[in-house]
Design a protein around this nucleic acid. Structure first.
Lengths: 162, 162
DNA sequence: CTAAGAAGGTTGCGAGCGCAAGTATTCCGG
DNA sequence: CCGGAATACTTGCGCTCGCAACCTTCTTAG
């Protein structure tokens, strides 16, 4: 199997669809969220992920692997969310290296406010344009690529919040 | 049809797969291309698109709509490619507002050198992990989203290169 | 007990790029 | 022909974020 065979039309179409559609969709969603709620898409995603976590908090590393950010990018984003009062940092009692990002009440409320905007955008620009079969196909095709060779970090192991 | 109904599991899975997979794949491809060829992914895409164009040149606007960049982003990217000698700007004889970006010989050669790296990355991280059916499904599902409400700019209309 | 190494986060630095405003050119109504 | 609107691109500004280096804390071998 020559892995350096040029892309055929089908392969190129799939790849370009992925790249271009993502760019376009993300730009639109981001613009809407920013205009109506003053929140960037990564910020929204972090708040949303925290809201679903036990005690509404997560370790930085966990958050980084879930979010579309490197650790350093996450640090800066959380800096900003802390400045805005939406998140607070908590240290871990059993491992002083670990930092938790925890959703504040204000952060939760902000997420609640922003949810309709985000939901509408996702539906309007992506989800409602696909059939159920297409939704499944996209998830099944693309999902495994993400979990491929990146080790999945295990759950939190810190008992004392401090 | 309540368009504000929360995303069900299938819808959420598809959307997240799109967002996360793209982020991961692009980061890897970009890192490989940068390390081995000293080229960013947007730069590669611009060179590749130019190489396929008649006379190996395109109007800035065309390029911007194809590439994953706004016009201002494209201006800066082309600035850089010009500095590196890979592209040159040409003015249009019949419409002085129009600027063409044209691939230089050096630019073409650079693209030829970088092609194997890019191809290998795309195969390894995306295309070779999908079945033909999945490739078609992704292209058919995602492709239409890109051409949806964005007007497709028509072909070049400039006769004299100058 | 101690030193080496790994792991979790954070920072210095700089590149990339979007938005809004600006410039130059062309189009069009009267 | 003339002036306003549209088009094509560029620039000022500022924010985001990745990489590499760094600090701190934990782990483990000797």
């Amino acid at each position: 199997m020559a892995t350096t065979r040029p892309l055929d039309a089908r392969e190129a179409a799939a790849f370009h669809a992925l790249i271009r559609t993502h760019a376009r969709v993300v730009r639109i969603l981001e613009a809407e969220l920013e205009a109506e709620q003053g929140l960037s898409l990564p910020a929204y995603e972090v708040l949303a992920h925290l809201s679903e976590a036990p005690d509404r908090r997560r370790r930085m590393t966990e958050l980084a692997s879930f979010a579309v950010l490197t650790p350093s990018g996450l640090t800066r984003l959380v800096d900003k969310l802390v400045r805005d009062g939406l998140v607070e940092r908590q240290r871990c009692g059993t491992d002083a290296r670990v930092v938790y990002a925890a959703l504040t009440d204000a952060g939760f409320q902000r997420l609640v406010d922003a949810y309709p905007t985000h939901l509408r955008g996702v539906r309007e620009h992506v989800v409602d344009r696909l059939t159920p079969a297409q939704l499944d196909a996209v998830a099944e095709a693309l999902g495994p690529l993400t979990t491929g060779d990146g080790p999945e970090p295990s759950a939190a192991d810190c008992t004392e919040p401090a």
